[in-house]
């Protein structure tokens, strides 16, 4: 059993109810038309792939279907923090 806390349901649920949707806090450029190809390419395609702490977007796919953020250690799978969209992580290093 690997339990993940859903901040919307307010309880721990089994991992199979959740999906990982990749890196969190990716802001869309405010003015896409004036982006260089490199800036746009970085926004669209380039993602971090750290060994260690990573801020990720998760969705409670089989439950309330809401998105939230998870700070997770990619090497040990330990979840350090769960926080809602729009909030900033407290655990950063």
């Amino acid at each position: 059993m690997f339990l993940i806390y859903c901040p919307h349901c307010g309880e721990y649920r089994e991992e199979e109810e959740f999906q990982n949707r990749g890196q969190a806090h990716i802001a869309r450029p405010l003015d896409p038309d004036s982006c260089t190809d490199e800036e746009w390419g970085n926004y669209m395609f380039f993602r971090k792939n750290p060994k260690g702490l990573h801020h990720e977007l998760w969705v409670h796919a089989a439950g309330c279907r809401k998105f939230f953020n998870v700070t997770r250690n990619t090497a040990t799978y330990e979840i350090k923090e769960v926080y809602k969209i729009g909030e900033q992580p407290k655990v950063v290093a």
Binding site: C9, R13, E14, E16, E17, A62, G63, C64
Partner: peptide, 10 residues
């Protein structure tokens, strides 16, 4: 009430 996985469905 919970929405969850049930068998291979939900």
């Amino acid at each position: 009430v919970v929405t969850s996985v049930f068998a291979k469905s939900s």
